[in-house]
Design a protein around this nucleic acid. Structure first.
Length: 305
DNA sequence: TTTATTTGACCGAG
DNA sequence: CTCGGTCAAATAAA
């Protein structure tokens, strides 16, 4: 593939090289980690694996920082100041339990801001499961599209101000039941610990994950809404029962499951299409495993000022 | 009961 | 104006 052909014009060559270097490094670490996980029987492997994970995170973090540094050079004026999670109303306007028409007439319910210059990339896959917890907040019929588009946001939007959203739309040729998922923004919520993977690695993947594959037959899915995709996005519930640590590790948990390659056979067929930023192309070209990585590794991106 | 999803209205951008 | 993204009341599910 034409690997670095689609670089943003403003990216200095030195940065390109550094980014590539970082990504390659991350890839290397990932490979080692994969080997480690294969030979999991060794008890000392746990520590090494954790170190590797840290290294991987660091590499991706650096690379992405470089990318965003360039990219946001222009947009930053828009973004940095105003693209906070909360529109001016800060999410809820609980004032009146009456109809919102009232609101509309008196106080303007949604003075929210549209995020145009956010990182966005598209994934075409036979599954909409990506290892993240999502909460559906809307669905729209799109012009010239057979299927409606579903809108999801991060469940921690209000907890942690995570701005990540995604839009899922079934492709026109539904013979193969492919979904096009557009991710907008990166997760700023904290996966914050690497404890979870150990638990998962040692045990079999929880069977509850099987219900995340919407493409195939899903016995638990309510039959009434079968006419269109209405992915059961109920992961949020699980997250809100942290029990021990008040922190949620779901992201890393599922991510690790992906690494291990549990029952995600179909994810391998992903196709990526970069829309704004080209880091995704880069990632593809370097053949660094699936997007789930990228999504996860951008967790505390530098955009926080 | 609480929590998640549905769905039509609202809003901003073009 | 239209279109698409978001909000939040109503509804469904657990």
């Amino acid at each position: 593939m034409a690997s670095v052909s689609a670089w943003p014009e403003g990216v200095p060559t030195s940065n390109k090289e550094r980014v590539i270097e970082e990504l390659v490094n991350g890839q290397e670490c990932a490979k080692q980690l994969e080997i480690l996980l294969h030979n999991w029987c060794e008890k000392n492997g746990r520590l090494s694996a954790e170190e590797l994970v840290h290294k991987i995170f660091a590499s991706f973090d650096h690379a992405l920082s470089l990318l965003t540094a360039v990219e946001s050079a222009e947009d930053s004026q828009n973004q940095a100041t105003s693209y906070d999670d909360s529109p001016c109303c800060n999410g809820r306007s609980e004032d009146s339990t009456n109809s919102r028409k009232k609101l509309a007439s008196k106080e303007k319910r949604g003075c929210y801001k549209r995020r145009r210059d956010e990182h966005a990339w598209t994934v075409v896959s036979s599954t909409v499961e990506d290892g993240h917890a999502w909460r559906k907040y809307g669905q729209k019929q799109i012009l010239n599209s057979k299927h409606p588009r579903s809108y999801f946001r991060c469940p921690r939007k209000y907890d942690q101000g995570c701005r990540a959203t995604k839009q899922v739309q079934r492709l026109e040729d539904d013979g193969s039941q492919m979904f096009q998922t557009t991710y907008i923004g990166t997760h700023t919520c904290r996966p914050d610990s690497f404890k979870a993977p150990q638990i998962i690695i040692d045990s079999e993947p929880p069977e509850s994950y099987s219900k995340f594959s919407y493409g195939s037959s899903n016995p638990k899915m309510p039959t009434k809404k079968l006419h269109e995709i209405t992915p059961p996005v109920k992961q949020e519930t699980k997250e809100e029962t942290p029990t021990t640590s008040g922190l949620t590790d779901m992201d890393s948990v599922v991510m690790w499951k992906d690494i291990i390659g549990a029952e995600y056979g179909d994810v391998a067929s992903n196709v990526y299409t970069s829309t704004e930023i080209t880091s995704q192309n880069l990632e593809l070209d370097l053949v660094i495993k699936p997007v789930e990585f990228e999504d996860d590794f951008q967790f505390d991106e530098s955009e926080f000022v």
